[in-house]
Design a binder for these strands. Sequence first.
DNA 1: AACATCCGCAACCGCCTAGTG
DNA 2: GCACTAGGCGGTTGCGGATGT
Length: 328
Amino acid sequence: MGKGRAPCCDKSQVKRGPWSPAEDLKLIAFVQKFGHENWRSLPKQAGLQRCGKSCRLRWINYLRPDLKRGNFTVEEEETIIKLHEAFGNKWSKIASYMPGRTDNEIKNVWNTHLKKKLVIKNSDSTSGDESKLESSITSPSSSESILSNEVPIKDSEKQVSNNELVIVNEDPKGSSNSLSYSIESNKILNSAEIVDNKIEQQHLSSLESYDIDKILEDMENLDSLIEIPWESDYDLWNFIDNIGSNDQSNVGEESVIQDVVENEFGVVGEIKESKNKEEVQPKNYEVEQEIDPHEAFDFNDIIMSDSELDFGNIQLWSTFSENNSPNV
DNA sequence: AACATCCGCAACCGCCTAGTG
DNA sequence: GCACTAGGCGGTTGCGGATGT
């Protein structure tokens, strides 16, 4: 071995830059089936021309099903500020106290919003107004649901609006361990997020005096409370939604994607009404380059019955069972 | 309308650390 | 204790959309 650190992979052999939907699906499908015990070997096995690190990052920061997505709430921002006071730039540490948020996301929010805000706040501290920080990144709009993943919470923890329906079955014993969720009218809502939000609100309300022990305790409880379903990704779904409605390129791959979507995610028919057809091409996605089929694993392998799936805590929106109201 | 600038965020880079032999 | 590997982490970059001129 020569001097210096060996590169984690051969940069000339791997694709870089934004991930395509097809790459995402391959990664998701592979991780769902085989897990990610070895990121280094994963790309080759999954038929991805990506560095293992890149796959790991993509999974952790974007594809992981338990990600919350959407804008940060004022409470979350305040939590970040408090945790940053305690831990400094230990983003992963901070992220560990904020389920559904990634260290990268928190880091970005800090660098782009909160740092500036704190500077302003400090310079204005003579004004004496120590009221809550006004969130510049929180969209208050209640008209968004699936797009922003900001799901308004009603007292009953059930959300029924227009064509959207989420059923949250509360355990009559109060353990909150059983969740059900539904997809109606081609819209998907993340019920776990509703519960997540509720718990977080309780959790945050207990944070007034910033009790780290309390946070830790809640976090432990959180792990046992929530089973998180596959969370829809707007761009991905939007892309998939429009597969077949545009040009006829990559027809084979599109049909595979469609199969995966229908068989694995339990979604049939249109996924979402596109408000604006100019949005058809998702932001930040590239046109997928063909991957050598001899290198790639057989995509059909990943299309399996629910009984074959064992994702532990990570669960896709699996095809509904006979009674059409699956329990997670 | 065209161009310049700003801003947010996904992705990359390289160092650090833990695990293993 | 050392060498090596892979995963994790924090800092940084660069693309693309939003906004300003």
